[in-house]
Design a protein around this nucleic acid. Structure first.
Lengths: 231, 231, 231, 231
DNA sequence: ACTTAACCGAGACGGTACGTCGTGTCTTGCC
DNA sequence: GGCAAGACACGACGTACCGTCTCGGTTAAGT
């Protein structure tokens, strides 16, 4: 994926311009633009290079020259659309910060960009580079900021010190992704707030990684485990 | 999707056989079997109906006669294979039952059939009928059982009476789906147990739907109003 | 072709009715009727057994039970439509009789049955039985009568005694078939009259078979042949 | 039909190449060659584009890009193979020239290419474009030459000046086509010579169009009005 | 009246070819 | 040498008929 980046890096490394006409920036952007546009209409599986090239007024060979396959192109297009960074405020409570942040995410999912997110995740199920790009360009940056939010909560004493941050964030966001992808129930602001409250409340008491917890991991008998529910 | 079911249901409803030669059950099962077999090798996008028909020794038209598209076929195959695999035991505690069931699910996801789950969800992002079939044939039946598990917990007093069951289940399973689909962190037994503990613990205290909290329909019930319950 | 005939003959030969339900005459006629109907719309190549069966409200297997292939069915249908025998008058001159007879034929070709004639000839190009049936059921009966017409002309002295009748008839009717099949020029009554006159005039002088003619068949030199044109 | 010709003509007319890769002449000829080859084995109805493409080592889409249907392809193949085969010589007499040319045609019909002629005429009975292509690519060019042959005969005085050339040619060739297509009698060299003699003899005396006969435009010519000329 | 056997309609079956579409590669002439 | 245009070999698509095969039901002759 993102082959254009690599090739440009190659140019700079040689410190000498390649001969011939340099690549046409206009074509590149038209291609990315058309990719996003069509992706919102048709989904990843039905997206065709042919249609993108036609829509962009670009030769098919030009597309293949710069992107090795559909996934790489979609990744590039997706990354180039990461326009407005999300705002992670500090409003004094983990619940407030997280629910605000998650509601921003919700609005993205409900916007036209949401179709692209689902398309990228869908495509990523059969294209390792595509899902990797999704993680690197979309998930990770957001998560870095979410870490800060949770750490502030720990400092404030709202959350235990040895909290497994990824655990909490996967639970929180997993609840969103689930309804977003499977669409079996309403993905509303209210739902997000409920998720937030339940998970953060659970985290505030027992959210530490099990490795540091004294109790058994897997009780040999379900009956005996009953009492262990409260750790 | 799942057209064979519907047509057969139609027969039974009319209580009178349709005229003409009845469908060949042998072909149906050979088709489903080949679908599963090939899906484990190639992934959803590269799976072709042509290959399925050839592998099953079945005419292509026969496949199209009973399944409108690749997705419906895959869902049918998946559902028919996974139907009797996931049990919700009663071992005396919500945590025990849920973590056991979720670990069963985990094993499916990690088996070769896991590819099928991700394929169906991926395909469903651009095919409404496909994701609907996934919900109807796979998600919903299991969820019915999960409701029972949670209700037993309520009866035992482990969970509050007015708990929003779907909320809890979406949080629990969302955490699994997230790591399964985005693959950014290890989807281990340990992870599942942690999720289970955190979420059920959170649920045991504050997981009631807000609407019921505000209306206070049944004040005689032993519910404890949380001070933190706002928004 | 015409397998139904053969089977019925078989019944009679055994002088004992076969057990079981006898064949349904209604289905047979509906099939033939639909064959003619569709043949007028689509031509031989595009005619399908499936469409015939559907149009006739008859099972496909019933068609195959009684006719081994499309050609045989078309032959039967064509033969069953040989309703009105042509009228071969005796009006005192070969020209008068033949032109009248050919004009009757012209009207058939221009009617809806004309499409069937062309379809049968077309189909006959890749189905020996079909063209044989055309000869036997359509061409031969007409030719028998045409022989009479020409023989009357010979008796009257209008045509030479040793005239090759088939030669003359093939020239006369060939001119019609050519324009009918290739459709490069108008196939009109006037054209037929012209053909008739030219050919019969030619026949009246030199139409004897060459075997009885003294002159060389193939002159070794074209120059010398010039005078031989008049025999 | 014959689309390649037209498109190439279009190029030349615009005197400017179309953009994009030009068509591959090698593929075109391989396709035509395979068409002829297979047509001699299987007949028109059983000929498949799929087999042609496979035999020619050509993509099926490439065939469809240049020929709209099987018929057009067959006509193109036939025309391109028969173009330089039929010569109208000038050996000093109409009879000599015509019989020689008709015998050349006879040899074609009796060769393996004869199957192609009958296939095209057969296909043309349910495909107007196919028979039109046959006329344009095969019949018309040859007829132009035949006109010359007959006109030479007129100049030499062998045939009357106001002879209807198409009438004579349709009678001559119709006799061939009839036996060729209906196959009810031997289509031999002897037959052709007989036809030739009879028809040309008939033409030499009365083959003028009736319209011109009645108007009597040029009474100086040595035409003998026939008493039998009525209707 | 009952059995028997062949008929019938409907339509599913394994196939084959259809004509279309998208893939990724290639060849042009222009820039 | 990049670029658009578009032809190319390839392969899967979803459809239409082929000729065969079950089905349940019908129709008569022979018991």
């Amino acid at each position: 994926m993102a082959s254009s980046e690599q090739k440009q890096a190659g140019e700079q490394a040689g410190s000498k311009r390649r001969p011939g006409r340099p690549r046409c920036e206009h074509s590149r952007q038209a291609t990315l633009r058309s990719t996003l546009k069509l992706l919102q209409k048709t989904g990843f599986a039905d997206l065709t290079i042919e249609a993108i090239a036609a829509d962009a007024g670009v030769g098919k060979a030009t597309v293949y020259r710069w992107w090795p396959n559909k996934g790489a192109l979609v990744v590039d297009a997706f990354a180039s659309s990461a326009e407005s960074q999300l705002h992670f405020p500090d409003c004094g409570s983990v619940y407030g910060d997280m629910s605000l942040q998650m509601n921003q995410f919700l609005r993205i999912l409900h916007s036209r960009r949401g179709r692209i997110v689902s398309a990228v995740i869908a495509g990523g199920q059969s294209d390792a580079e595509l899902i990797e790009a999704f993680r690197k360009r979309f998930l990770r940056p957001r998560r870095q900021e979410a870490y800060q939010t949770l750490r502030r909560g720990i400092e404030r004493g709202e959350l235990p010190q040895d909290l497994d941050l990824d655990l909490v964030l996967d639970i929180l966001y997993g609840a969103i992704y689930m309804r977003f992808l499977i669409r079996h129930a309403d993905l509303s602001e209210r739902y997000i707030n409920q998720v937030c409250r339940l998970v953060l409340d659970g985290a505030s008491t027992i959210g530490r990684p099990l490795s540091k917890v004294k109790s058994q991991l897997r009780p040999t008998n379900g009956r005996k485990m009953q009492g262990a529910l409260r750790n």
